[in-house]
Structures are given as structure tokens and as C-alpha cells.
């Protein structure tokens, strides 16, 4: 029944190449605004993919991934201002987030459950305060501009941005897909399922947890850096506490622990607010009511979606899809993959 090659790397590269080619063709068909949305979804995907590995596969809860995205974004802004080399800036953004992730991860590896959530939450809350306290560097609420060279040739900026973001997101997905199917991925799951058993099996639990945090922070850093490039600006409002919560909600609704679920989550993050905007416009409310609904409806819809998904499909959208479509015949997974994620959630 094997349609795709058994070699993991080859299989992932083929899927990524096919996806990349399809999306590349798509960017020509889409309106520029849709290209921009696609690019935004791809940027979010870098972060949600990392978060789903951390939370779904390694069992560590992070409410601070928005802050890690901010680290990447501000690094890109500062580096673009100083050197103006985009690839260097994005690399520095990833490195900075990686370093921040290492620090948080070292603390996180000693903490469990609500305490871990508390520490990461504190990081997310600190972002606006940091930008205000050192406002000469970060320029407070107004934020920093991100200088960008115009795209090559007659290419529209938004289309070029979409290519960049989709390319980076596919890279992240390939790397993470390989990681989760490697020894490290098995270690991640072993630690999530039973720390004592993992320790008995010779796995260094703390190191595995720190590694998972660092990997996922790097993803968030790249996502934040890309967002900064897309909007050509960075401000704390883009990386508020709500972003961290949205990211977590997105991976849960998408399907915790699965990279495909992270894709669903990233798409939801971009298109759900858009959908609710269309809805408020379509409802033709009185100006006063429209004002109140406009700002709050996305929150309500997101919350409602979360509740419905948790009741109807605890495995998230991806879990639901797996039930409906027999994916196993296409991509055979090792037995350990089949362990339902809900095991971890119950503990």
C-alpha cells in the first residue's frame, strides 16, 4: 500500500516540495491581500508547529510563545535597521529566540503543570513592560519599523513575502517532522507519557525537556521574525498575551501533537478574525452595535470553536479528519505514533 517512499527524510522532502509547488502556483492565482494572509498563516505556522511539538509531544505547556515570537521579531527589526541583510536578520532572530528559549527551558524543566504555565505566562506578560522600560531601544507601544529592500524585479511585495514565509514554514515543518520521527521524537513522547519510565530507560528527562523547549522557541522566533518582515513593523501590541493564548488555542483546536494540526491552527488564526469581520459587515448592525461586536466577536467565535471542538472532537480538527479519512494507508506511521494524545492530557 506504500505510495510514498519509506525513507523518512525523502518522504518529507517530497511532501514539502509538492506542497511548496502547489502554494507557489497558488500565490499567482490569489489576490495580493490573500497572498499576505497566506504569508501570515505561514509565519504563524512556524510558531504553532513548534508549540505543538512542545505541548503535544513533550507534554510541556507554554503560555509564553507570543513572547518568544516577539524576541525573534524585535531582533529582526534591530538587525534590519543595523545591517539590512534579511537572511542574516532572520537567522539572528531564530538564534535570539533560541537563547531565550534555553533560559526559559532550563527553568521550565524544573517545573510541572500550573507552575510551568505560570512562568511562561509571566514571560508573555513582560513583553510590553520590557518595550516600555527600555523605550529608547524598543520605542514603547509605537514599536519599530522594519526596513525592507524592495522585492526583485516586478514581483509584488506581498507575493514575494508569501514565498519567503511559505518557504520558511515548509523548512520548519520538514525539520520538525524528521525530529519527531527520530530518536529525539521518541524521547519527547517517552518523557511526556511517563517521566519515571523514561528515566529508567536511560533518557535524561531534564535535557529532553530543555531540548524540546529550545526547538520550539526557535520555531516561534522564526515565526515572529517573519511576521515583522510581513508587516514591516514590530510593536508590543502584535505580541500581547492574547497572542500566546491564541497560539495555544490554535494548536489544541487544530489537533495537539500533530504538525498537520498546527497547519489547521495557523489557518484558523488568520482566517477566523477575517471571517468574523465579514460576518459583522454582513449583519448590517447599527453603528454602535457593530463597533462593540467587531472587536469582540473573533474572541467569542474562537472560544466557542474551542468548546465545540473539545466536546465533539477532542483530537482537534486533524483528529477528526483522521477518523473520517484513513490516513494510515497513505503514510504508515510507527506504532508509537498511534498512542492517543489524550493520554497526556489526562495526566
Amino acid at each position: 500500500m506504500r505510495v510514498l517512499p519509506g525513507n523518512t527524510l525523502l518522504r518529507h522532502l517530497l511532501i514539502a516540495a509538492a506542497g511548496g509547488a502547489a502554494l507557489w502556483a497558488l500565490t499567482y492565482q490569489l489576490e495580493l491581500y490573500r497572498d499576505y494572509q497566506l504569508a501570515t498563516a505561514a509565519a504563524y505556522l512556524c510558531a504553532t508547529a513548534g508549540l505543538t511539538v512542545l505541548t503535544g509531544l513533550n507534554g510541556q505547556l507554554s503560555l509564553g510563545h507570543g513572547a518568544l515570537m516577539a524576541v525573534g521579531a524585535y531582533t529582526v527589526a534591530l538587525s534590519q535597521d543595523k545591517w539590512g541583510i534579511l537572511s542574516l536578520s532572520l537567522a539572528l532572530g531564530v538564534l535570539a529566540a533560541l537563547a531565550a528559549g534555553l533560559v526559559i527551558g532550563l527553568a521550565a524543566a524544573r517545573l510541572r503543570g500550573p507552575y510551568l504555565a505560570g512562568v511562561t505566562l509571566a514571560v508573555a506578560v513582560a513583553v510590553p513592560a520590557v518595550t516600555t522600560t527600555w523605550s529608547s531601544v524598543f520605542n514603547s507601544d509605537q514599536g519599530l519599523p522594519v526596513a525592507l529592500d524592495p522585492p526583485p524585479g516586478t514581483l509584488a511585495l506581498e507575493q514575494w513575502q508569501a514565498w519567503l514565509a511559505v518557504g520558511c514554514a515548509l523548512g520548519v515543518l520538514v525539520l520538525l517532522a524528521n525530529l519527531t520521527r527520530s530518536r529525539f521524537g521518541r524521547d519527547f513522547r517517552a518523557v511526556r507519557d511517563d517521566e519515571t519510565a523514561a528515566r529508567l530507560a536511560g533518557i535524561d528527562v531534564a535535557r529532553t525537556q530543555v531540548l524540546a523547549f529550545v526547538v520550539s522557541a526557535a520555531g516561534a522566533g522564526l515565526g515572529g521574525g517573519l511576521l515583522a518582515v510581513l508587516t514591516q513593523s514590530v510593536s508590543p501590541g502584535a505580541y500581547a498575551l492574547s497572542l500566546s493564548l491564541y497560539l495555544l488555542m490554535a494548536v489544541v483546536v487544530g489537533g495537539l501533537g500533530s504538525l498537520a494540526g498546527a497547519v489547521w491552527g495557523a489557518l484558523l488564526l488568520v482566517f477566523l478574525p477575517d471571517l468574523t469581520h465579514q460576518l459583522t459587515v454582513g449583519l448590517a448592525l447599527s453603528p454602535g452595535a457593530a463597533q462593540r461586536v467587531e472587536g469582540n466577536l473573533p474572541l467569542a467565535v474562537f472560544g466557542l470553536t474551542l468548546v465545540i471542538v473539545m466536546i465533539a472532537a477532542p483530537g482537534g480538527l486533524q483528529g477528526l479528519l483522521r477518523k473520517l479519512v484513513p490516513f494510515r494507508t497513505i503514510t504508515p506511521l510507527p506504532k508509537s505514533e498511534e498512542r492517543p494524545v489524550s493520554d497526556a492530557q489526562r495526566t
Partner: peptide, 20 residues
């Protein structure tokens, strides 16, 4: 378009106005 005085939202809604 409502941006809630958040520069990040402004980026988004202005793109919507101009591009879409």
C-alpha cells in the same frame, strides 16, 4: 476599519483596505 489603537491591527486592516 477598527484597529483598536493597536499598531499591529492597523497593519492588517490597512492592507485589507488597499489590497482587498
Amino acid at each position: 476599519m477598527d484597529d483598536a489603537y493597536n499598531p499591529a491591527n492597523t497593519q492588517n486592516v490597512v492592507r485589507q483596505l488597499v489590497l482587498q
